[in-house]
């Protein structure tokens, strides 16, 4: 059982990377990108293409994929999301959902239904493990993923708190019009945030391909997981996303001990429980007003 808990903890690291992009987009642009999971899968397929078809080493394929995904994020924001955002809350949901459908089926059309994985190409990493004092066995790939998550979140935090772009992003997220009055080009900031978010999704996709089999329709499951991690950890908090990911991972791993479907079920249950607890606590029972909006402060991450 301890093993399962540790596994869950490390899984939380992967979830944090997956959720970071979603959280960033939501914090800055205030909409949930329903295609986020599909973008991660697209990134996975990008790397798979690089490795399996072009014969690149894994690290090279990943490094090539990241800027391509950033460019994709930039363009999507420019052509799709920015327009949709102007039209109200309904449209971004519909447009990103449609985008997800396009991505899933497009990937299927190109790559077919074969499930693919990078497992064979990362050598020992896919199965090797370390034995910690106390007899606890920890997989190398999950452990390294967790460390990578810490690095990524730390990097994001540095970006947001110490750099010019980071300040501009936070200002735009807080009050886009006031930011404009300070000379900040809000459109550019949104595009930059989109680029970062999609690039992070791609990174998560690459990690997914390393630890599991990828199929074109895996996107929605990733989206749901990412969203659950964000909500459990508290919307708007960067490190909260890691905490949420860990709680989710642990719940899932413990659930899996009971029955194979328990993995997913326990995750959904944890999510729904946290949601109910938050709603009950906030005691906002009138007007259908969003209880979760009270958590919508982009705190100094």
């Amino acid at each position: 059982m301890i093993d399962a808990a540790i596994q869950g903890l490390l899984l939380g690291g992967y979830y944090a990377i997956l959720a970071a992009g979603l959280s960033l987009m939501f914090g800055v642009m205030r909409f949930i990108n329903l295609a986020h999971g599909d973008l991660a899968v697209a990134g996975a397929y990008g790397v798979l293409f690089g490795v399996l078809t072009l014969g690149l080493p894994v690290w090279a394929a990943v490094l090539a994929m990241l800027p391509l995904m950033a460019a994709l994020g930039w363009l999507l924001q420019r052509w799709l999301f920015a327009r949709a955002l102007r039209a109200g809350f309904l449209l971004p949901l519909l447009v990103t959902f449609g985008l997800g459908a396009v991505l899933q089926n497009g990937l299927y059309g190109v790559f077919g239904s074969d499930t693919l994985s990078l497992g064979n190409h990362i050598g020992a990493l896919s199965w090797a493990s370390w034995t910690l004092p106390g007899g606890v066995v920890v997989g190398q790939l999950p452990a390294l993923t967790f460390l990578l998550a810490l690095a990524v979140l730390g990097g994001l935090q540095c970006l947001l708190s110490r750099t010019r772009l980071g300040r501009a992003i936070r200002a735009t997220a807080t009050d886009a019009e006031a930011a404009q009055l300070c000379g900040v080009d809000a459109g550019r900031v949104h595009r930059a945030a989109g680029a970062i978010a999609v690039s992070l999704a791609g990174l998560a996709g690459a990690l997914l391909a390393m630890r599991a089999l990828v199929n074109p329709y895996a996107g929605p499951a990733q989206l749901i997981t990412a969203f659950e991690a964000v909500v459990i950890g508290g919307i708007g908090s960067l490190w909260g996303t890691l905490a949420g990911g860990i709680v989710l991972g642990v719940a899932q791993s413990l659930g899996a001990l009971v029955t194979p479907q328990g993995f997913d079920l326990a995750g959904h249950a944890a999510f729904l429980l946290v949601l109910v607890a938050r709603l009950a606590g906030a005691r906002r029972f009138q007007l259908g007003k969003p209880a979760l909006r009270t958590y919508l402060k982009w705190r100094r991450a």
Partner: peptide, 21 residues
């Protein structure tokens, strides 16, 4: 006023300083 509430005074000033003339 519309200050960026979660950001410090210094950061508020810097945003304009870095993006203005």
């Amino acid at each position: 006023r519309r200050l960026f509430g979660d950001m410090t005074v210094r950061e508020n000033l810097l945003v304009a300083g870095e993006n203005g003339r």
